[in-house]
Amino acid sequence: MQPIYLTVGLHPLMIIPDRASHAKGAAESTHTYYVYRHQPGSNDNEKGDYIGRLVFEIPDKLFDYFPEGPHPLESGEASELVEHLSHYRESSGYRSGN
């Protein structure tokens, strides 16, 4: 999966979707995203500081943010991230079952 770049508050972030596969090789809808603080000018191989993972339990309704690292997102920033990713999932045909 390609990284997703976006800004939450004043923080540029790089989001790495975790896309699982079924035994038959068909891709499954992503529900887990790994969140990194992105350093402008760095490339995809330089992930930056890992600040946690976001898991959509029920898309657009229930999510959990698991903060990690020295500077995780605050609750308002996590909510803003959910809004951005929900929009991304809707606009890119990323819905469950697609």
Rank of each mutant, 00 (worst) to 15 (best):
I16N: 14
R19G: 14
R19P: 13
R19Q: 14
A20R: 11
S21P: 14
H22M: 12
K24H: 15
K24W: 15
K24V: 15
A27V: 14
A27K: 14
E28H: 09
E28T: 13
S29R: 01
T30R: 02
T30V: 12
H31Q: 10
Y33K: 08
Y34L: 12
V35F: 07
V35A: 10
H38K: 07
H38I: 02
Q39M: 07
Q39T: 10
Q39E: 09
G41Q: 06
S42A: 10
S42E: 09
S42I: 02
N43V: 02
D44I: 00
D44W: 01
N45Q: 09
N45T: 06
E46H: 02
G48L: 00
D49Y: 03
D49R: 07
D49L: 09
G52E: 03
R53C: 10
L54Y: 08
V55L: 00
V55I: 04
E57K: 02
I58C: 05
I58N: 03
I58L: 03
P59I: 00
P59Y: 00
P59M: 00
K61D: 11
K61N: 11
L62M: 07
L62F: 06
D64C: 03
E68D: 09
E68K: 01
E68S: 07
G69Q: 09
P70T: 12
H71C: 12
P72Y: 01
P72H: 03
P72C: 08
S75I: 09
S75H: 04
G76D: 13
G76A: 11
